[in-house]
Write a protein that binds this DNA or RNA. Structure first.
Length: 506
RNA sequence: CGGGGUGUAGCUCAGCCCGGCUAGAGCACUAGUUUUGGGAACUAGGGGUCGGAGGUUCAAAUCCUCUCACCCCGACCA
């Protein structure tokens, strides 16, 4: 055997993290750049992950009383103008439709039929949904209104990266209207908790729930809450947001109702969303130098069976054995759904197949060959163990214990990620000099993986933001769990009780 | 929108500065042979309007002009 590569993905994480990320996406056949600038093609394996995220989250959204609906892709320009902060926030990144027809001229197609009012491709749907809400809500009896939509949105970003930031992305956006502020705030927290559960219990990605500082709020929101995750380069990823919009959008869209006292009031609204960015978070949380590692709860397939066929005449028997194991596994369930199995019958070399599935992150690989038929066994490999770490297991035992094995892998991913994150949260930094040192890479030109999260005091003074931006550090959130202790702001030294998470971010 | 860069095979790129035989390499793809329980080897093949238009020249991937697209840095960001 010739000298083999040390890892399936080149470069390794510590060599060049951004490039490693790209290579994992490519090797895992998750997505690729499309011919349209900033937009991605999500390939079947990547889309399968999204479908499973949808499946889990959709269940949770419905279990908390919401219903799905669908609103238009196009928003009249004038709608976006209704909420001042909202315009400000989104104006610079909107795709605008100005024509509705093409005319052939000299073999070229020229836009014609100019629209009276331009349409904006939705960057988010508060305003167009608000228009419906205004008509749907008349009485306090019509509230709360609890709506969600699965959709695509477009934000014309300057700099894009597959899954993390693309001009078009897939998401869900919840929009609710309530009679009282308390109820709307409660909704905001409730959905934040749903997102925490999705991230931690389904994606095995530990997150910190917190409140955004005013400068980081959603345009038009009164309060923005978020879940923040730590990637393996120790940078933060905002993985989901939940906004309390107060009456800002209700006033902009005239969402009014008569209360029990017969008085007209504006409703209180919320909105909340997570996107295909979660897949980027998933990759940067779990993938290693051999490629993707998928938590079983969102893996499109749980098990691949690789038939080993040393001689052509053994093929029929081996395939039959593989198929029978696949059928038996599929009859068992994991996390409430049938175990999904694929038998890889392709006529390529076994080693190549194995590595392909390793890079795609499938949780379990089973190899079966003529010898295994004899002894009624399988060779079992787990993605949370080494690529050559095999176990010979009796066939019926492997089938019976597969659900437990998958649960085990799910847990081990979460534990690993949590240990990693917690070991890179610094709680001891008390002054700006230490802070600066923590966030300054040794190698300025090609920064090594450095820093992490700093949990420290924050006063919110304007001059502090400038100091942070020089370091390219942001306040990720004020965690919901606050110590309440007196202290001094890590940036300015001003007295404060607020705890904040600081980090460089995606 | 400011500054820089790149367009040559499906992918990654060499060739350009200094113009010259039929435009190359690696990977990928096809076929055959030998292999096969962890990323195979050999042999033979297929595949290109050199981003586009115009110009200079006996001759242009190479020089000049225009143009289009994309990438990187900055401002912006689920």
């Amino acid at each position: 055997m010739k000298s083999k590569e040390a890892s399936a993905i080149t470069p390794r994480r510590e060599e060049d993290y951004p490039e490693w990320y790209q290579q994992v996406v490519r090797a895992g056949e998750l997505a690729e750049n499309s011919v349209v600038r900033g937009c991605m093609v999500i390939k079947p394996w990547g889309y399968g992950i999204w479908e499973n995220i949808q499946r889990s989250l959709d269940r949770m959204i419905k279990d908390t009383g919401h219903s799905n609906a669908y609103f238009p892709l196009f928003i009249p320009l004038s709608f976006l103008e209704k909420e001042a902060a909202h315009v400000e926030g989104f104006a610079k990144e909107c795709a605008v439709v100005t024509h509705h027809r093409l005319e052939a001229r000299d073999g070229k197609l020229i836009p014609a039929g100019e629209l009276e009012e331009p349409l904006v491709v939705r960057p988010t749907s508060e305003t167009i949904i608000g228009e419906s809400f205004a008509r749907w809500v008349q009485s306090y009896r019509d509230l709360p209104l609890l709506i969600n939509q699965w959709a695509n949105v477009v934000r014309w970003e300057m700099r894009t990266r597959l899954f993390l930031r693309t001009s078009e992305f897939l998401w869900q956006e919840g929009h609710t209207a309530h009679a009282t502020q308390e109820e709307a705030v409660e909704e905001t927290y409730k959905m934040l908790e749903v997102y925490r559960s999705l991230a931690e219990d389904v994606l095995a990605m530990p997150v910190i729930r917190g409140e955004k500082i005013p400068e980081e709020r959603f345009p038009g929101a009164v309060d923005t809450y978020c879940i923040e995750a730590m990637m393996q380069d120790r940078k933060a990823l905002q993985a989901g947001t939940s906004h309390f919009l107060g009456q800002n959008f209700a006033k902009a869209s005239e969402i009014k109702f008569l209360n029990q006292a017969g008085v007209t009031e504006y409703a209180y609204t919320t909105s909340w969303g997570v996107s295909t960015r979660l897949i980027g978070g998933l990759i940067m949380t779990h993938a290693d130098d051999d490629g993707l590692r998928l938590p079983p709860k969102i893996a499109p397939k749980h098990v691949v069976i690789i038939p080993v066929v040393p001689k052509p005449e053994t093929e029929a028997a081996v395939f039959e054995y593989a198929d029978s194991i696949a059928r038996e596994l599929h009859a068992h369930s994991f996390n409430g759904y049938p175990i999904e199995v694929i038998v890889d019958r392709r006529d390529i070399r076994g080693g190549e197949k194995s590595w392909e599935w390793i890079k795609k992150g499938i949780p379990v690989r089973l190899e079966v060959g003529p010898r295994d038929i004899e002894s009624r066994q399988v060779v079992l490999y787990r993605r949370d163990k080494g690529p050559r770490d095999k176990a010979f297991v009796g066939m019926s035992e492997a089938v019976a214990s597969m659900s437990d094995t998958l649960g085990d892998i799910q847990r081990s991913y979460f534990e690993q990620a949590k240990v990693f994150r917690d070991s890179h949260i610094n709680r001891d930094i008390t002054n700006f000099e230490e802070f600066r040192r923590f966030f300054t890479p040794k190698n300025e030109h090609k920064p090594e993986i450095h820093g992490g999260f700093v949990l420290a005091k924050w006063s919110g003074a304007p001059e502090a933001l400038e100091a942070l931006s020089e370091l390219k550090v942001t306040v990720r959130c004020l965690p919901l769990e606050q110590s309440g202790t007196e202290g001094r702001c890590v940036v300015t030294g001003k007295p404060t009780t607020k705890d904040a998470i600081f980090a460089k971010a995606y």
